[in-house]
Every structure is written in C-alpha cells, then in structure tokens.
Nucleic acid binder design. Structure first.
Lengths: 282, 282
DNA sequence: CCTTGACTCTCATCCTGGTTGAGAGTTTAC
DNA sequence: GTAAACTCTCAACCAGGATGAGAGTCAAGG
C-alpha cells in the first residue's frame, strides 16, 4: 500500500501550525516524520500522522508542557494520565487564584493613585468620617521617632518578614501605618506603639495581631514628607484642642501612597496623620 | 554627610532577593549602585536606594515586566501609570478567563477518560436515556462513507476551520459526532448528513448551525474502530427492529474519546452509534 | 532541458526573568 | 598572614517557539 506523504509545509498548513513548530516537535521526539530523505534531509509525514499531531495540539491546549506530552505519548497509561490531569487542574486553580490576587493588588494600586490625586494638598487639616478598618500589627521593638528614617524602615522590614513568614504574600500592596497610644499623644509623648498594615485578613499569632479600628470622626492632616510627622503631631493636637474635639483613641500615621513613584527620596511619602475624636456638646 | 553603603550581598539579604537579581537590575538600568569601585568592580548601594528597590519589587508583584517598570521609573507620569495599570487589569482578566477555559477543558478531558473507563465493552447494544444535548453542525459537503477515513478527516478539518473562524478556540476539547437523516437510516442508505461538535454555545451563522438533540431513549452500540461503523449501522437497525423500537430521529455517530492516546492508528477510536427510539405499547 | 519561484534545510539568535556554575579576584575577620 | 566569605565577569540554561541568514532542493511552465 502506497502511503501518501506530506511535505513539512503541507503538514503545517493542514494543521494550522508553523513549520518551525513541526521541526521543534521532530527535534524533541514528539513527532518524527515517517520518512526523511537521506540526501536532502527533507521531512515527509504520513497522512496518518495527523492523528498524533492532533493529539499533541490538543494536549498543548490543555496546558501540558511538551515534556509532559511526550511522557503521555510514550507510556500510554490511562491511570497515570488521569492523575496528571488531576494535578493539572489543581495547578490551574492555583494559578487562577494567584492571578486574581494580582488583579486585586493592581486595582488597589489604581485606587491608591486616584486617592492621592483627589486628596487635599499637604498641610490641610480636616475632620473626616472614616469607616471601620482592620489592621495587622506588631509591637514596635524600638521608638523610631528617636532615630532617623532607617530605623523606621528596619521596623517595616521586620513587619514584612513576619507577615511573609505567616504566608501573606504581596505585602507591598497593602497600606502601612504606625500608631501612638492615645495617652501618649495627649501628653505630647512621641512614643511609637505599633506598626501595621491595613488588611481584612484575620491572622492572629503571638507576634502579629489583628485589630479593628472603630468607625467615626477623625481629626486628620495631610503631609508629604516623613520628616514633617514629628512637628505636625503637636499641631494636630492643637487643632483638636482649638475646636474642642476630645481625643478618643490612638493616634495613627497612615501611609497613603502604596504606589510611590514620585521620588527616590525615601522621605517623600504621602501621609495622613489622624486621631479619632468625639464631641462634648452632646 | 557620610552615606552608609551596602555591599550587594547585604542589599540582597535585606530585601530577600538574590544577588544575581540585583546584578540583573543594574545591567537593565533599573537600579544602578550608588558607587562602583573602579578597581574591583564591586557594587555598593546607598541605604536610601532601598526605597527604589522596594518599588521595583512591588511593581513586579503587580505583574509588570522589567521593561514596564523601567518605563514607569523613568518618566514618572501619574496619568500614564494609571493607564498602564488599567490596561494591566484588563489583561489579567483575560488571562484569568483563558485559564478558566483551560481548566474546563482539562476537566472535560478527565470526564472523557472516566467515561471511557466505565463504558460497556465494544459490540454491546444498550437502550440508554440521554439528556438534551446541543450541537454545532455544518452540512457534509461529501459523503465520507463512500471514501476512506481521510475523507472524514477532511470534513473534520473543515468544521474546525469554520469554528475557529467564528472565534471558538479549544475546539479539540469538545466531542465530535456525525449524523444520518432518520429516513436514510431506516432505508439503509448510508448518506452522511452533518458533522458537528457537542457544545452549549449558541453560535448561528449561515454555515455553522446550533441545534438541540431531544432527550429520551436511544438505542446504542459501542465500537472501537472507525471501520466498524459501516457494518454496525444495519446491526443497530436490526436491534431496533427485533425489539420493536420505533426510530424517531436522526442517527448519530458520537466520538467518545476526546482524549485518544491509545494508538497512533487514526482508525482506533471509541464510538457510540445511537438512534433515538420511541415505543408502540403506550 | 532549463529557469524560476516556492520550499526546505541547518544553524544561530532572541524573547522573559532570572538561576546556576566556572574560574578568578577581593574583602573581612580572626 | 591566612582562610573563609564575598564578589566579579562571562556563559549557558529553562520553555516554546519566532525570526532570519545563507544554502540547497523540488516542481511547474516554457
């Protein structure tokens, strides 16, 4: 029986793939041409080899690697194939979840940029209603207000290290904050209490604690330099005093720019200093 | 002011990345060390460069390529960044959908293998209840029963070509079937009518038509070779006649093995020949 | 039989975002 | 002073091809 032989170009166009792909499959041992002219080196495929090529294309659509395809094609063990496919589904689900997390992170970055664009200019005081927020905090091991910004950054690294040890990835896409106890704030004592990130995750270990910040009115001021925090804390207190706002909870310094592309100067960041307040006239 | 300089190893461990990665970022112009010793070539980083590196790592987590990161870092145009991120979200959504489609396809492949495993051995006749099925069909341009399998494969390629022109990808993961009109089946006339794939998609163009196969009882027989179809069609009709089943619709030849790894012989496929039947005794 | 255009060959290079290794040179700590 | 740890450059490798150069081959028409 005379077999019909196809040139590599015919074979490729018949199956809507590139000629180079067929050569690659030959090289990898996935699909060896039925006949190779020993003089010219031309590859000729049997028309029946379409079935195998079809299977290869199909398995590629399923997301199998060429190595896996070769493996399946060599040892045709139905049980092993089912196991491999089951594993593949698992992996696909993981990949999907990872991509979804990434999409959430990008959306948060967009929100952060929008937020920055629409925020009051630095130096403005305001009274704002803020919804409930959940934070993941660790206690400050040292008072970074006494040192320079690198001391703060060290604490930040510590926080991130602990959180990534807890399996929380994409730590960068959460906003960061630090706190001073209400008592210290009122007394004018600059004593760092906690460093944290805003996150709805409810992790709770001996080091990392999840905590809820109550909703309500907060006295706020926006600044754009790390070094401005220290002088602005008394000003925020004065703002409260002047307006007879009663400080009702811990002071918070919130880093608004998760996405800080504005300068290589690490001190340039967009901050919202804030403290929860209540009113006496009720 | 004397700056604190960090060796490449310190810089890497501080940010939990590999030394080689830092060298790569240097080479790509993403993060150039503050100082390079002209004699030894050793790289030394300023501690303030952590901020920039942090941004790079953050943007990498967002799924931006190194080229995109460099672009953002160079021209710090807030509007362009927002646009780029918006585009990124779009692309992520597409990728997620593609992966989900792939997962569906792999699950279909697993089902197909299971189905094969649990099906009756070839040659068995059976009466089965089958649910409603939707198909995407094209009319056969020639009667492949008159020729060999390559004629059938040509029709198949034609179907796939048309469907992929309609934007239906992953065509391989749908099961395939062919039909003969009820009249011809009863008359013993082997005349191919349509070739189609089982799919819930409701495409409808002048060439590709979506159609619903009714639920009900079907007289079925399983075979495992393409060449067996022709002799088994009359046997299926005889099975109906013997049991006084009344043929009530078009005959269908269903390819059960979407995942056919069993042989390179294109004729080896697992088929379920079937025809819908009703009963006179009611 | 010859020409021309279409095909095909091999080999090399490039893409991403790094990782790994070889072989040589440098810094740091004891 | 010496050994260990660190760093340098350069090259190759991963997957799954895409692209191109330069040379050789095939088929159809005149």
């Amino acid at each position: 029986m005379k077999e019909k032989l196809l040139s590599i170009g015919k074979m490729a166009s018949l199956n809507h793939i590139a000629v180079s792909t067929l050569r690659l499959y030959d090289e990898k041992g996935l699909l060896t041409p039925q006949f190779v002219d020993p003089e010219s080196g031309y590859r000729y495929y049997d028309i029946n080899q379409n079935a195998r090529l079809d299977m290869i294309i199909y398995m590629r659509e399923l997301g199998l690697s060429l190595a896996e395809i070769k493996d399946i094609l060599n040892k045709k063990d139905s049980a092993r194939i089912e196991a491999l496919l089951g594993y593949k589904v698992e992996k696909l689900s993981q990949d999907i979840n990872a991509l979804k997390a990434q999409r959430r992170a990008v959306n948060r970055a967009i929100e952060s940029l929008e937020r920055y664009r629409k925020s009051p200019r630095p130096g403005n005081f305001a009274l704002e209603y803020i919804e409930k927020r959940r934070i993941l905090a660790i206690d400050c091991t040292h008072n970074f207000y006494d040192d320079d910004i690198h001391s703060y950054e060290e604490l930040l690294r510590d926080l991130r290290l602990r959180l990534s040890a807890e399996g929380i990835s994409q730590i960068h896409s959460y906003n960061i904050g630090t706190s001073i106890k209400a008592r210290d704030f009122i007394d004018g004592k600059m004593k760092a209490d906690q460093i944290f990130l805003f996150s709805d995750l409810k992790e709770n270990t001996n080091k990392v604690k999840s905590r809820l910040l109550d909703n309500g009115m907060w006295a706020c001021v926006y600044i754009d330099n790390y070094d401005d925090e220290l002088p602005y804390i008394p000003l925020l207190k004065k703002y409260c005093d002047d307006h007879r706002y009663h400080v009702s909870g811990d002071y918070i310094c919130e880093v608004m720019t998760g996405f800080n592309i504005f300068d290589d100067d690490p001190k340039k960041m967009f901050l919202r200093l804030q403290v929860p307040v209540t009113f006496n006239n009720r």
